[in-house]
Structure formats: C-alpha cells, structure tokens
C-alpha cells in the first residue's frame, strides 16, 4: 500500500489549510501523518503483508523442505477434491439456516422491543448475554446439552418416537444417505444443531441492529398508515420493511461474513464431526493447513474465501452508500 506516502504528501501540501491561523511548524503541519503512521504500520505488518504472503503461498508447494512454484495447481487440487465439494455444501446449508433463523427471530424480537415496554432495557440486556460469550464457550455449552446419554437434551433426541426410526445422538449420528449423489443433503443432525447454537450467539447483535433501525422509523408514518387502513402485517410489509431495508442488508452481510469465517464454535461443539458432517469451509481450511500442514493448498482455499469476503464487503459498501445518497 503506497497510501501512507500519499497521506504524508497530502498532509504537508499547502491545500491543507484548515488551521491557517496557527503558526505552521513542521510538526503541526504533518501531525495527521504522524497520528496515522502507527496504525498504518501495524495494519501493513499484520494484515496487508500476511494477506499478500498467503496469496503467494497459494502458488507454492512444499516437498522435502523445498519450496516449488506450482502456479494454480493448488487451486485445481483444492477445487476438485471431494472434501471441498462437501464442505462447500455444508457451508451453504449452514449459512441458509443460520441467516434465515437469526434474521427472522431478530426481526420479531426487535419488533416487540420497539413497543417501548417499561422493561425493554432489561430485556435487551438479558438477550445480549450470549453476545459476550466466546465461540468456544458457546460451543461447549451446547455440547454439554447433547453429550451422549448424560446431556439434558440427549434423551429427547434419542427418543425413537420423535426421531424415527431409532432416535439420534447429535455428536455421533451421521447424515442420512444423500438424495442426490455429490450433494450432502439432507445434512447431519449435528449441522442443524450447529445452526441453532450459532444463531443463539448471533441473535443479540442482529436484534440490536434491527431495533436501532426500527427506532428511526417515525411513529407518525406508522400511525398514518394504520389510519389509512393498513393492518399490522401490511404496515410491516409496506412501511417498516422498506424503511429499514438498508440495515437488514447490513445485518444480512454481517451474518454471512461471520458464518463463513467463524470456526471456534465448530471446534468446541463438534470438531468437524461426526465424520466430516460439520466440516465447513473455514474448518476445512484449518484441517488442511494445520492438520495436514499443507500450507499451499490451505492458502489457495483461504484466497478463495478472501474473494468471497471482499465481494460481500464491497456489495455492502455499495448498497449502504447508494442508500445514503438517495
């Protein structure tokens, strides 16, 4: 990134005259540069260089201590592997369930909280507790519910009448045979359970975001809509929904990003299992890179994930900007 140099030249340029009346010492004139410098250095060292280094690693392979340039072969091998194919679908199923569940629950709860109940502050605080828990803690808490035989929910899942034919044990029951070969659908119970655990953790943040947006919708608009004869559902559908749409989109992208990148919960809840049933992309990346120490292929996969992430962020940016200008 050459922008730090640009910042310096810009800061010292005569066009920067917001404090013209001050005696312009060298330090005062270049103050913005010095204030920015440490942050930029840290970001270059910890984020930019490692990012580029990973990109470089994705074109390398390591054989008997030697590093060889292999071009795009790492990408080919990753994308053609069945583990990648399966984990792509796992991620997709996970994302759909996780995003839908969290958005719907968050929207409903935010609607209720927006009614200015006397205890709203208390409710928000309570609902927010899961947010401060770490992924590992959340995974472990939900794991304790379903440990074979002794978990609080284990008996419920093991009941053959609720889950025919023989009941299930989340941590050990594999996925049912795939309906279409190559597509691991239906997903394993563990993946569905993972969705619930993740949604539980993400719910507070999404609720708060939506609530903040709902509070900007003026009462008058809602009231005039109901005077014009709109019922509750239509008010939500035609008034509230369009007004908070930008926030909903931000929330959606936030969830997707966290869903793609989050890995701590998989670690402590299922460890990718049973088998590879909960091996989402980020967990696969971990197993390739740090389990098998195949850094070249792991880097290739990580570049693929970075592309997904950057696309999502640029889309969010574009949408939120166009909304602000409109």
């Amino acid at each position: 990134m050459t922008s730090s140099a640009q910042a310096a030249s810009a800061a010292t340029s005569p066009s920067q005259t917001s404090h013209r009346h001050i005696k312009e010492g060298f330090f005062s004139r270049t103050l913005p540069f010095w204030l920015l410098l440490p942050s930029i250095l840290v970001l270059i060292v910890i984020q930019v260089i490692p990012g580029l280094f990973s990109f470089f690693l994705s074109t390398q392979t390591f054989e008997r201590g030697e590093q060889i340039f292999v071009g795009l072969r790492n990408f080919e091998r990753v994308f053609s592997s069945s583990a990648f194919n399966a984990s792509l679908f796992h991620t997709l199923f996970f994302l759909i369930g996780y995003v839908a569940l969290t958005m719907i629950a968050g929207f409903v709860i935010a609607q209720m909280l927006n009614r200015k109940l006397r205890l709203s502050a208390f409710y928000i605080t309570v609902i927010f507790v899961p947010w401060v828990l770490s992924d590992v803690v959340v995974g472990l808490i939900f794991r304790l519910f379903i440990v074979p035989d002794y978990g609080l929910f284990s008996a419920f899942f093991a009941d053959p009448q609720i889950f025919p034919p023989r009941g299930i044990s989340i941590l050990t029951t594999p996925a049912a045979p795939a309906l279409v070969s190559g597509v691991p659908f239906p997903p394993a119970p563990a993946l569905i359970y993972l969705i619930f655990a993740s949604a539980w953790k993400a719910l507070p943040f999404i609720t708060l975001l939506i609530l903040a947006a709902l509070q900007t919708v003026s009462r008058e608009v809602i009231e005039s809509a109901s005077i014009d004869g709109a019922d509750g559902w239509r008010t939500v559908r035609y008034i509230t929904f369009p007004l908070i749409l930008p926030t909903l989109i931000v929330a959606l992208f936030n969830l997707t990003l966290n869903g793609v990148n989050g890995v701590g919960l998989v670690f402590s809840l299922t460890g990718g299992g049973p088998g590879t049933a909960t091996e989402v992309l980020s967990y696969l990346l971990y197993t390739i890179g740090f389990g098998r120490l195949d850094f070249g292929r792991a880097a290739a996969l990580s570049v693929f994930m970075a592309v997904i992430n950057l696309t999502l962020i640029l889309l969010t940016l574009r949408i939120s900007r166009s909304e602000r200008e409109a």
Binding site: G51, S302, V303, M305
Partner: peptide, 9 residues
Amino acid sequence: GIPLLTNLI
C-alpha cells in the same frame, strides 16, 4: 474482508 485464517496461515 481478509478472513482471519487467511492471515493466520
């Protein structure tokens, strides 16, 4: 937008 794991490698 750079995933944590990308940098961590």
